[in-house]
Amino acid sequence: MGFSKRLSKAAALGVIAAGAAALLTATPAQAASHCHFSNTTGRYSCSGSNSVRGPNDVIGSKLFTGYDYSGDSLTIWVDRPCPKNNYVDYTIDLGSAMRKKVTSVQAWSTCWTWLYFEDGSRDGPYQGNDPDVGTWANDRAVTVGLS
């Protein structure tokens, strides 16, 4: 947006100030999305957990795009708490909304969260609330494993 050459400096400053005030009070263009995926049903939705989870599902993990559990999130539902059997019991390939965007993780229902990267390496297990997965793992995960 340009200003007319005949616009006085004071008028131009008033227009700029009004525009800045509108930007400060406007609602964000897009609020953070909070999506859900059920390993039991194979369903994914950003319209609440009731549309995806099975009748006995429990939360296995929550992933976030921002530090300290902020930004977009993905809640992963599983059919039972993770058994501690030295196996990765669930693996979920991340879709475009979370792929290479995970920054913080919460482990739930005895499930430990593993982050897998394109090069085949992984990081974890994240066993509780991790507000920052660290510089090595940040924004690299393409698959999540729960054990």
Rank of each mutant, 00 (worst) to 15 (best):
D130M: 01
W136T: 12
Y126D: 00
T143E: 15
S121H: 08
G120N: 02
N85F: 12
N50L: 14
T103P: 00
S73H: 12
L7S: 06
C46G: 08
S147V: 03
N85I: 06
S70V: 04
Y67S: 14
A22P: 04
S33H: 13
R6V: 04
H36Q: 13
A21P: 05
H34W: 02
D130F: 04
A17T: 01
G2S: 12
W112L: 09
A97W: 09
A32F: 13
L63R: 09
D57C: 00
G71S: 00
S45H: 10
Q127Y: 10
A26D: 07
R80D: 04
A11S: 12
V78A: 09
V144E: 07
Q106R: 15
T40I: 07
S104L: 14
A97C: 08
D72Y: 10
T25A: 12
L63A: 03
N86D: 15
V78L: 07
R140G: 05
G71I: 07
H34C: 04
V142F: 12
V78K: 00
H36R: 06
G124H: 08
L24M: 11
P131N: 12
N138A: 03
D57M: 01
V58S: 00
T143P: 06
A31V: 08
K84L: 12
D123F: 11
V78W: 04
P83S: 07
P125C: 00
H34S: 08
D72S: 07
G66R: 10
T41G: 00
V102E: 11
W112K: 15
D119A: 07
K5P: 03
G128Y: 02
A29G: 07
W136L: 11
W77P: 05
G60Y: 10
P125W: 02
V15T: 08
G66C: 03
P83E: 09
V78R: 03
D68T: 14
P81E: 00
A141G: 06
G120D: 03
N86Y: 08
T135W: 11
R99M: 12
D79N: 15
F64N: 04
G134F: 04
C82F: 05
A97L: 14
G66Y: 05
K84E: 13
T27G: 11
S4P: 11
W77A: 00
P28H: 10
V133Y: 10
A26C: 02
Q127K: 14
G128F: 01
S51I: 01
R43S: 03
K84H: 14
T25G: 10
D93P: 13
A17F: 04
T110E: 14
D130H: 11
S109R: 06
A12F: 02
A17I: 05
L23C: 03
L63F: 11
F64W: 15
T110N: 15
K101W: 08
R140I: 08
S147I: 11
L115Q: 14
V105R: 13
H36C: 01
N56H: 15
Y116H: 15
D123H: 10
P81I: 06
G42K: 00
I59D: 07
S109L: 11
P125M: 08
G42D: 07
